[in-house]
Design a protein around this nucleic acid. Structure first.
Lengths: 144, 144
DNA sequence: TTTATAAATGAAAACAATTTTCATTTAGCG
DNA sequence: CGCTAAATGAAAATTGTTTTCATTTATAAA
């Protein structure tokens, strides 16, 4: 999904395409790291000063509710977001602990484990959270 | 690890064993759900009124730093804790979305996936977060 | 193109969660 | 028992997030 797709998706669902929303989408779209609300607000300031932090929060909520972005849990904060690459697709993240860059992967190979756990514990499982953290190729070089 | 072990561990590392700490450890020790700081504070109030929320925060930090409790990420909040069953052991959680009860499991079968991802992405992985969410046996019955 | 209108925005205030400060208390040692 | 550093509680400060409300704006209809 590129910026245009996200914009189109919002429009399709009857939401207005404001300057602010476009700007926020653009920040997320040009970024491979996960960002906290305050990070996004700060980045906005350079190009589009005057957009309020409140609007950032509201737009993130809107995008989130419409499945247009995803959260990253591992690492520092708990509210860190990322543009969703493909709408609706089940996927997971590989997060760089230095620069925050995120790579996606889709096949999590957890079916067998899930079934074993259901059998052993009696839980009925319907959701899982899986993220890997490490160093991306660039940060490995930088680290030496 | 039972309460006594946790207490002993703290003592061994030169921390004082105060009433408050014992009380907090006891709340965590008698509980199979994950609890937020405010939850713990509330539960303390019944048996040991007068323990401040600040002390709860400080004690949780202490226990956390000493590897005596673990966090739960999936679900509502981001700061939810649980007594660690065995010190230092690599393990994961299965969380009930209704009652919050947590079951542990140790073998996460992620080695193969980890290796595949390292090969495919070039990331060097050194940590992962894996949690399952569902319904525990009791909450399945209650749900019908 | 202009107009009407509901939706979106920004600023300030409110709220919630967490941390800091500091004076007082206490565990654990001698 | 008395000493001392560590721990506590209460209040204040800080940080992150949400609500309120008057104003602005995107969009659809005229």
């Amino acid at each position: 999904m590129v910026e245009k797709d996200i914009a189109a998706e919002l429009k399709k669902r009857g939401f207005k395409l404001t300057h602010q929303r476009k700007a926020i989408i653009s920040v997320l779209g040009n970024c491979r790291e996960h960002l906290k609300p305050a990070d996004i607000h700060q980045r906005l300031h350079k190009k589009y000063p005057g957009i309020g932090l409140v609007t950032v929060y509201r737009t993130l909520e809107l995008l989130q509710e419409n499945g247009l972005l995803c959260e990253v849990h591992i690492g520092d904060s708990c509210r860190s977001y990322l543009k969703r690459q493909r709408p609706g697709e089940h996927h997971h993240h590989l997060v760089c602990r230095d620069c925050g860059r995120v790579a996606d992967f889709t096949d999590c190979e957890l079916d067998r484990l899930k079934q074993r756990l259901e059998r052993e514990t009696g839980y009925r499982i319907n959701r899982h959270l899986l993220e890997f953290m490490g160093l991306c190729p660039q940060c490995q070089i930088r680290e030496v």
